[in-house]
Nucleic acid binder design. Structure first.
Lengths: 346, 346
DNA sequence: CATGACAATTAAAGCGCTTTAATTTCATAT
DNA sequence: ATATGAAATTAAAGCGCTTTAATTGTCATG
C-alpha cells in the first residue's frame, strides 16, 4: 500500500488525460494507435499497474471469485483448490479462498466475507454434513450471487452443481469386486446423514442387488460409519474390523487415504492382499498406485470437474441480472474404474 | 456485485449523514452512544456490510495479505495455508492465496498480482529452487512491501524468514539412528542446489562426523537426489536403492510422504523393518504414526511457524514507513524428534 | 445575555479508477 | 474559405467509503 504509481502519474508523463490512459490501457479502439503505443510504453517504463480496488470500485466488478472448501489438509481438496485457481486465472479472475475447517458456523461466515469482498461469483465445496443445517445457503442463493456447488450439493437448494457420479462409481466398483468372486463387502463409510455417503451407499447396494439374481452365494454389504476419513481412520477402523473375524473379503473405503490405511492395517495383521481380502479406494490419488499392493480405485477427474464448475460459473456470471434461463442444472461426471492389484481375482 | 446496501442507504434510513454512519460503525467515540446504537441496529436490519473495495480505497489499506506457495497438493503446504489463514484472520486480515506450481515464472507473476491487489504484506513459501534465479525477489524487497519468507529463505536477500531448523533436525535424527547402531545411512534427498537440501545434508554430515570419533565401525552417508518428492518417488527410489544390495541400514527421507513410500517399498521387497533397515521421515504428518510400521520423524511445529511468520509480518506492517529497526531477522524453530518403531534398535 | 468550551454532527474532499457526454481536432467535400 | 462529420481526446461525474475541517447545538460561566 505504498506510494505506487497511479494513472495520474502516467497521464502526466504522457501529457494526456487520465481518461485517455484508461481507455488506451483497456484497449478501447477510440484511442489513436500511436497514442496508445506511447501510453503503454510510458506505463511500462513507470512500472504502472492499476489499483484493483479502485478499478473494482469504478467498474463495479471485483475480478474476484470465492472458493470455500471444508479442509485444505487433504490431497483431495488441495487438488480442487489448485484446479479452480488455474481455471479462474485462465478466465481473468483472481481466486479468494476460505477454509471452513469442517465448521458450519465458519462456513456461514465465509459466505458473508465473500459478499463483503464483492466476489462476482463463488464456488462452494460444502462441508459433508447432514442436510438439514444449511439454511444459510438459502440466503446465499437469494442474494443472486452466481454460485455453483462442487463435489457435493444440497438437493433442496436448486443451485447448480458439478460433482462426480458417486453412485455410478460406487456401483461399478462393487460390480467389479463381485465379478471377481468377492461376496462380503464392507464399506468404511462416513456419516450416514451426509448426502454423498447416501449416494455412495446407494451405488454399492445397487450392485449387490443386481448381483443377487445372477450369482451365488448371496453377496452382503456391511457399512461402518467412520468419524474421521483420513489415513489413520482407515488404519484403525480396518484393524477393528479385521480383528473381529467376520466374513469380510473386500474393504471399500471412501477415499484413497483410508484405503491405504486399511491396506496397511490388513498387511500388518497378516492378511494376504488380494488373495484373502480385496481393498479398494476412491479418487485415484497418486499414492494409490504406489502402495505396497497397488490399490484399485475410482478416478473422479477432478481437473475436469473444476473446469466445468468454473465454466458454469462464468456462464452464470454473464447472464447475471438477466432472467435465469430455466432451472439451474447439475453436472454429474462419469467415473472411471482403475483396476489394480489390490482387488485381483483370488 | 449486485445492488447491495450501501452506507448511503443506512444514512438515509437513520436520518444522519454518511459520515456519522461511518464513524459510528467504526467505533469512533465522537458519536453519541444513542445514535451509535440506532445506526448499528438499522445497519443490521438492512443487512448492510461495507464494500471492502471502497473501504480499502479510501483507507489506503486493503486488509489483504498475500501468501505464495509452490504447491497445494501436499499435506505440508496444506497445513501452511491453513495456519497462515487462521493467523491472518485472527489479526483481522483476509488471506489471498497464490500457487506457483513450482514454476519460477509463475512465482514472479504472483508477486506482481499481489502488488496489484494492494496487499499490505506478504508471506512467501518459496519454490525449492537453486538460489541463483531469484532476482525478482530483489525487486520485491525494494518495493518495501513488508514480506516474510517461510519454510525457506534466500541467504543473499536479507529478508526476514521463519523456518524450522532443518540442520538441527537432520542432525538429531541422524544421531538417533547412529546411536541405535545404524551405520550406513542413505538420504533420499532433493536437488542439491537447493538451500534447504544443503542445510539438511549439513545436519546429517555433522552427526556422522561427530560420531566418527566415538563409534566404530565408521558411519557412512549416501545421498540420492530425487526429482519429485512425493509418495511415489519415495517408493520408486527406495526400490532402486534396495535392489542394489548396497550396505544400507537406514533410509532418511525429506518428508513423511517419501518415508511412507520407502517403507512400503522396503516391505514389499521383504525387508524387516526396523530389524534390518530403519526408515525415518520428516514433518510428523498424521499418517507417519499410522503406517504399517510407525515411522520415526521430526516435528516442525508448522502451527507455531505460521503464527510466528504472521506476527512478524504484522510487526513489520506496523513499522512500515518508519525506518527499519536494524537488520531484518530470521527465526529458526527448534525441531522435535519423534521416535517410533521404524527405527527401533535392531 | 454574550461568551467560550465542549460534544455531536456534517459538508466536502479525496482515494484511483471508469465511463459518458461534451469538446476539440482534422481531413474531406463543397 | 467554409461546412461537415468522423476521429480523438477530455472534463467531469461517480463508484462507496473515510476523514478532516467546519458547523451546529448545548450549557455553564462571567
Amino acid at each position: 500500500m505504498n506510494d505506487l504509481i497511479t494513472i495520474n502519474d502516467v497521464a502526466r508523463a504522457a501529457q494526456v488525460s487520465t481518461a485517455t490512459v484508461s481507455l488506451a490501457l483497456n484497449g478501447n479502439p477510440c484511442v489513436k494507435q500511436q497514442t496508445r503505443e506511447r501510453i503503454i510504453r510510458i506505463a511500462k517504463e513507470l512500472g504502472y499497474s492499476p489499483n484493483r480496488l479502485a478499478q473494482g470500485l469504478a467498474r463495479r466488478k471485483s475480478g474476484l471469485i470465492g472458493l470455500a472448501v471444508p479442509d485444505i489438509e487433504s490431497l483431495y481438496y488441495g487438488k480442487i483448490v489448485r484446479h479452480i485457481d488455474e481455471a479462474a486465472g485462465q478466465n481473468g479472475y483472481q481466486l479468494t479462498l476460505a477454509i471452513s475447517n469442517d465448521n458450519p458456523e465458519t462456513e456461514r461466515k465465509i459466505i458473508g466475507k465473500f459478499i463483503d469482498q464483492q466476489v462476482e461469483g463463488l464456488i462452494v465445496a460444502p462441508i459433508n454434513q447432514p442436510v438439514q443445517q444449511v439454511n444459510y445457503f438459502q440466503e446465499l442463493v437469494k442474494t443472486k450471487i452466481p454460485c455453483v456447488f462442487i463435489t457435493a450439493y444440497y438437493p433442496q437448494l436448486k443451485a447448480p452443481y458439478v460433482m462426480a457420479d458417486l453412485q455410478a462409481g460406487s456401483c461399478v466398483l462393487a460390480e467389479h469386486l463381485l465379478s471377481q468372486g468377492r461376496r462380503h463387502l464392507c464399506f468404511l463409510s462416513g456419516c450416514p446423514e451426509v448426502i454423498t455417503t447416501q449416494i455412495r451407499t446407494a451405488g454399492l447396494e445397487e450392485a449387490v442387488r443386481k448381483a443377487a439374481g445372477r450369482q451365488a452365494p448371496k453377496a452382503s454389504l456391511r457399512i461402518i460409519a467412520c468419524q474421521r476419513l483420513d489415513y489413520a481412520a482407515g488404519y484403525e477402523q480396518a484393524c477393528l474390523l479385521l480383528k473381529q473375524n467376520l466374513p469380510v473379503d473386500a474393504i471399500i473405503t471412501i477415499n484413497d487415504e483410508m484405503a491405504l490405511g486399511a491396506l496397511n492395517a490388513a498387511i500388518s495383521l497378516g492378511f494376504d492382499i488380494p488373495g484373502q481380502l480385496a481393498v479398494a479406494g476412491y479418487d485415484n490419488m497418486i499414492f494409490s498406485s504406489a502402495a505396497t499392493v497397488p490399490i484399485t480405485t475410482v478416478d473422479q477427474n477432478i481437473d475436469l470437474m473444476c473446469r466445468q464448475a468454473v465454466d458454469m460459473l462464468m456462464t452464470m456470471m454473464k447472464q447475471s441480472g438477466q432472467e435465469a434461463n430455466g432451472h439451474p442444472s447439475g453436472i454429474m461426471l462419469e467415473p472411471r474404474l482403475v483396476i489394480r492389484r489390490s482387488t485381483e481375482r483370488p
